[in-house]
Amino acid sequence: MKTRQKDRDAPEPEPWSEIRPGLWMGGHFWTDHTGGVRPAVAGDEFDLVISLFTRGGHGPHPAVQHLITELPDGPLTAGQILAVQELASTATHAVRGGRTVLVRCHSGHNRSGLVIAQSLIELGHAPDAAIGLIRQKRSPRALNNETFEQYLTAGLQVAYLLSGLDTLD
């Protein structure tokens, strides 16, 4: 399954960014000061790691709870939108419980941004405020996937229902 866009932006100059206390966003790769792309390997610095893209050798430590749901960096099916909702709820519950959470994808822009934004919405942010906070804390390039931004502004439940219409005969 293809899980990322060919024209995705380059990784950020840091592996992870704290979007709000306890809620981190990042990728499997980051760019060092020389411009070299480096692996971002999670160890045991987080209580929960949610990976929307996976690559062997990138952690986390075996003792860390690790949820893996590979998603494309493009339009999602109803089932994939439901998975985003469930992952965001899991992240929200963990943060409310005082746990540290990392949500990551390839470069830490779109897929991780979608889950983080939905978590922020569940934590009381308006969709536009959640998107703005992610762009401020992670990167202005974060959530540059217009479809994901539309899912968030319409509401994931609405996006889920509309995506499910494709499966009706």
Rank of each mutant, 00 (worst) to 15 (best):
T77M: 01
T77Q: 11
I50H: 01
Q118S: 11
M25N: 05
L23H: 08
N110Q: 06
Q118M: 00
G79N: 09
G74D: 13
V37R: 09
I131T: 07
H93T: 15
L76I: 08
G98Q: 04
D47R: 07
P62Q: 11
R99S: 13
V103M: 09
A117N: 08
L120D: 06
F29L: 14
P75K: 04
L71P: 10
F29G: 05
L123Y: 00
G26F: 11
R20P: 00
A63F: 08
A126T: 12
S51I: 02
R111N: 09
G22V: 13
D32N: 13
H58L: 12
H28R: 15
R99I: 08
A130Y: 08
V103E: 04
D128G: 02
D32L: 05
R135G: 10
P72R: 06
G74H: 06
R38Y: 03
R99H: 09
N110V: 07
V64T: 14
V103Q: 00
Q80L: 03
A94P: 12
T34E: 13
V103K: 00
V41R: 15
L87V: 03
C105T: 03
G57M: 11
A42D: 02
H125D: 11
H93W: 00
A40F: 11
D128E: 15
A91T: 09
L23N: 07
A78R: 15
A126Y: 05
A91R: 02
G43D: 10
D73V: 06
R96T: 06
H106N: 15
L87I: 03
P21M: 08
P127K: 11
H28P: 01
H106Y: 13
E122C: 04
Q80G: 02
E45M: 10
R55P: 01
G56L: 06
V101C: 06
L120H: 12
H93P: 00
E70K: 12
G132Y: 12
L48M: 05
H28S: 15
L76G: 06
I50R: 05
R38N: 10
H66D: 09
R111H: 07
G57K: 10
G98Y: 06
T92L: 07
H66C: 12
D47W: 02
R96Q: 13
L82W: 02
V41T: 14
H109V: 10
L87Y: 07
P127H: 02
G36I: 00
R99F: 10
D32V: 02
L23T: 03
H66F: 04
V49Y: 12
A88V: 05
G79F: 01
T69E: 14
G57V: 04
G97Y: 05
F53G: 10
G26Y: 06
R111E: 09
I81N: 08
R55W: 15
G27D: 04
A91M: 07
H61Y: 12
S89I: 02
M25Q: 15
A94Y: 04
T90I: 07
E70N: 13
L114Q: 14
I134G: 09
C105M: 03
F46V: 01
L52K: 10
H125Q: 07
V115N: 04
H106I: 01
M25W: 03
G26N: 08
D32F: 04
A40Q: 07
D73S: 01
D32R: 08
R99A: 14
L23R: 03
A129H: 13
E122L: 13
L71Q: 05
L76P: 05
C105A: 03
